[in-house]
Amino acid sequence: MAQFDVYSLPGSDTLFVDLQSGAVDEYNTRLLAPLVPADPRLKPLRRVNRELRFNSRTYLFMPQLMSAVRTRDIGKSVGSIADQRDQITAALDVLFLGI
């Protein structure tokens, strides 16, 4: 498992991005945040709920809904959005630090 890998959890239609650094791989959990399909009816907080691209689709990053998930419940990665790391970390900075 790698930071910024994307997962589709068993029994869920939602995609999740792994936010956890590999520096703490010894834990049996990973910190995941959902990626929700972009929808004009949604009212995202633009600095937190960044638009991210995955498999030619646009998603909203929802870090305020992050959760620790047991690694045995995650399954295999369906891809990565590591190329959008700067957008993800900027959103987390706003969420946690207000900057």
Score class of each variant (00 low, 15 high):
45 L>M: 05
63 P>K: 01
45 L>A: 06
5 D>L: 03
47 R>Q: 14
55 N>V: 09
13 D>F: 07
63 P>D: 05
77 S>I: 00
44 P>Y: 00
61 F>K: 03
14 T>E: 05
50 R>N: 01
71 T>P: 11
98 G>F: 05
67 S>P: 01
5 D>I: 03
58 T>I: 15
27 Y>I: 13
91 A>W: 00
67 S>N: 14
73 D>G: 09
81 I>K: 08
68 A>K: 08
74 I>M: 10
51 E>F: 08
53 R>Y: 06
29 T>V: 13
19 L>I: 02
23 A>G: 10
53 R>V: 07
31 L>P: 06
63 P>Q: 08
94 V>S: 02
52 L>Y: 06
61 F>L: 05
48 V>P: 03
14 T>N: 09
10 P>C: 01
32 L>C: 05
18 D>P: 10
70 R>H: 07
97 L>Q: 11
36 V>H: 10
34 P>E: 10
52 L>P: 13
79 G>Q: 02
93 D>I: 02
66 M>Y: 04
11 G>T: 02
92 L>F: 01
63 P>L: 05
91 A>P: 13
26 E>K: 09
65 L>Y: 03
80 S>L: 09
59 Y>L: 10
80 S>Q: 05
11 G>C: 01
94 V>L: 05
35 L>C: 12
30 R>Y: 06
91 A>Y: 02
79 G>M: 01
98 G>A: 08
84 Q>T: 05
89 T>N: 03
17 V>Q: 01
18 D>R: 14
26 E>W: 11
95 L>S: 10
99 I>V: 00
83 D>W: 05
11 G>Q: 04
14 T>A: 13
36 V>A: 04
97 L>F: 12
79 G>R: 04
74 I>P: 15
34 P>W: 07
65 L>D: 12
40 P>R: 09
91 A>R: 06
19 L>W: 02
25 D>Q: 13
30 R>E: 07
62 M>Y: 13
19 L>E: 05
1 M>N: 06
48 V>W: 00
55 N>Y: 01
62 M>E: 12
70 R>I: 08
85 R>Y: 07
38 A>M: 12
45 L>N: 08
60 L>E: 02
26 E>I: 08
96 F>P: 00
35 L>Q: 04
64 Q>F: 11
76 K>W: 07
1 M>T: 09
78 V>I: 15
50 R>P: 09
43 K>Y: 08
67 S>L: 09
50 R>H: 00
28 N>W: 05
97 L>T: 12
76 K>C: 10
2 A>H: 15
49 N>M: 11
30 R>D: 03
49 N>T: 07
49 N>V: 10
71 T>W: 00
8 S>E: 11
96 F>V: 06
23 A>R: 14
68 A>M: 09
63 P>A: 04
5 D>P: 12
17 V>W: 06
6 V>P: 15
30 R>G: 04
10 P>M: 00
37 P>R: 02
76 K>Y: 06
4 F>L: 13
65 L>N: 15
49 N>I: 02
7 Y>N: 06
58 T>Q: 12
72 R>D: 11
83 D>T: 14
40 P>G: 07
24 V>W: 03
25 D>K: 14
13 D>Q: 11
75 G>E: 01
56 S>V: 10
26 E>C: 12
5 D>V: 01
40 P>H: 04
61 F>E: 03
66 M>K: 07
72 R>M: 13
66 M>H: 08
62 M>D: 09
92 L>M: 15
91 A>N: 01
2 A>T: 11
40 P>S: 12
23 A>C: 08
67 S>D: 03
16 F>S: 11
